[in-house]
């Protein structure tokens, strides 16, 4: 029904956007409002995603890292429209997702999938594995029963489950196997873009590598694009191509993986990287310890939100908010040390 109009819209906006960007996020904001308390003038608000812009290229794995509660999952869920953005746009292949009707969005779900963090919570306990994996097919395809079953068989073989598992219920599996079911469900419609919401953080270290390798193999086979959210930097280093670092709802640094891990610019990224454990007792490392806790998201600091924990901060940082600026090539950072070094020294 919408195909014609969607297509024209796509073609028009394709001209304006870079051809190989599958996702473009422009000034995205997702706010959560609390209940107004007695004698309070305004409703308390958590700016979980606060004015975030980036783009994801076809075929790459885009990582988002940050502490718990910094808004990385919210960002991902807003990108795939499981949450409604408060402001801003998400363009999927140049198509503005916020302009779509509920039906059009539902139709697009076959190209955009999600792998959840907790494989114990993301599978309907009342469905068998076959029903779970076949669910997306039942929604979108008119194949015959046997064709659907054939597809299900093919996909469970690809993720390393057995034929006999199809009749079982999710609770009969271990965490790693359940995550394979979740991956199979996300893959069955041949999607183009998958949002991975900490897909391995609930798993044992021993199965983590298996699942990550599986995801990498599948990506190579199917030319998938991943948006990969994690708080585990070694996982991100293993699987991602480009990485964004989030702090209190904002992106503070975006860079190619190698650039980020070798020459981090933002002091927060530096601190995160210094916290990666190195499996060698003889290596002496300079840990950068952050002072204080993550500030309350209800009441974030003024200026640069990181200034109260930053070892380089000056007065200027608590006044002005730094914008994401290009430092070299593909490396962007939101820090006054790069955007306004002279002001940092002079303003007091």
């Amino acid at each position: 029904m919408c195909v014609a109009s969607c297509l024209t819209q796509r073609m028009v906006s394709d001209l304006n956007s870079q051809k190989n960007d599958i996702i473009q996020v422009k000034n995205l904001k997702t706010f959560f409002y609390g209940k107004k308390k007695f004698l309070q003038r305004e409703r308390p608000v958590v700016k979980a995603v606060n004015d975030v812009s980036f783009s994801i290229r076809q075929g790459e794995t885009f990582g988002v890292v940050g502490e718990s509660g910094c808004g990385k999952s919210t960002l991902g869920r807003t990108v795939i429209q499981l949450l409604k953005p408060t402001e801003g746009q998400v363009l999927y292949k140049g198509l503005d997702l916020s302009t779509l009707s509920a039906d059009q969005m539902r139709d697009l779900r076959k190209e955009i999938q999600i792998i959840f963090q907790d494989p114990y919570a993301s599978l309907n306990p009342k469905m068998t594995v076959r029903e779970l994996i076949q669910g997306p097919l039942d929604v979108f395809s008119n194949d015959s029963r046997s064709d659907k079953l054939a597809k299900v068989r093919k996909i469970i073989a690809a993720v390393g489950l057995r034929e006999a598992d199809l009749r079982k219920y999710p609770h009969e599996f271990s965490g790693g196997q359940r995550q394979r079911i979740v991956i199979a469900r996300a893959l069955i419609l041949n999607p183009e873009f998958i949002f991975c919401d900490e897909p391995v953080s609930a798993l044992d270290v021993s199965v983590r590598a298996q699942v990550l390798n599986l995801m990498k193999d599948i990506q190579a086979d199917l030319d998938l694009t991943y948006m990969f959210v994690s708080h585990d930097l070694s996982v991100v280093r293993f699987i991602c191509d480009r990485v964004a670092v989030m702090y209190l709802g904002k992106i503070v640094e975006i860079a190619d993986k190698h650039a980020l891990f070798e020459e981090a610019k933002h002091p927060y990224t530096e601190a995160l990287l210094s916290a990666i454990p190195v499996p060698d007792v003889n290596v002496k490392r300079q840990r950068i310890l952050l002072e204080g806790d993550l500030p309350s998201p209800y009441n974030p600091p003024s200026g640069c939100q990181f200034h109260n924990r930053c070892r380089y901060a000056t007065k200027y940082c608590s006044v002005a908010e730094p914008a994401l600026t290009q430092v070299d090539g593909e490396h962007y950072v939101a820090c006054h040390r790069y955007s306004a070094p002279e002001k940092m020294k002079t303003v007091s």
């Binding site: 499981l82 959840f116 919570a121 993301s122 309907n124």
Partner: peptide, 14 residues
């Protein structure tokens, strides 16, 4: 609020 209900939204269920 469970993830599996979100997953149903994500696979386009009505």
């Amino acid at each position: 609020e469970k993830d599996y209900v979100q997953s149903a939204v994500a696979i386009g269920e009505k």
